[in-house]
Amino acid sequence: MATEILIIEDEEDIRDFAARVLELEGYRVLQAVNGSEGLRMLRQYPVSLVLLDLRLPDCDGWALLTELKGDPHLSRVPVVMFTASAAESRRSQALAIGAIDYLVKPLSAARLKETVHNVLTRERKL
């Protein structure tokens, strides 16, 4: 069974890009356009990795990340932040809350592919 990845991102073009690249890499991709939809999908489907945008229409990506990491059923799911903010402080904040990696837009298809691949490989080894 293919590995499932959830993308929570409100920008349609960016969501489609990420989803298509990951599909081409053989993953099954779920897409959510906002935080509440993302949370609902997470509770419904077993997901191996979440790509989470920091700036969402209905909620702050920070709040969602904090909620995920505080939920005993979901805290083990690795979260890769996916953001247009390059500030280093944001990066350390995200890692401190429990994100496993931090991707800054714009990024290439290869970078997205490698990051997801590396995270999942590390997770399997654990």
Binding site: E11, A84, L107, S108, A109, L112
Partner: peptide, 24 residues
């Protein structure tokens, strides 16, 4: 911060799709 965000979003689309077209 908003300008940075707003510039990066279309740039991300361009970078993402162009690399995707090249790679795949």
């Amino acid at each position: 911060s908003t300008v940075s965000h707003e510039l990066r979003t279309p740039l991300a689309v361009i970078k993402g799709y162009s690399t995707m077209l090249l790679d795949y």
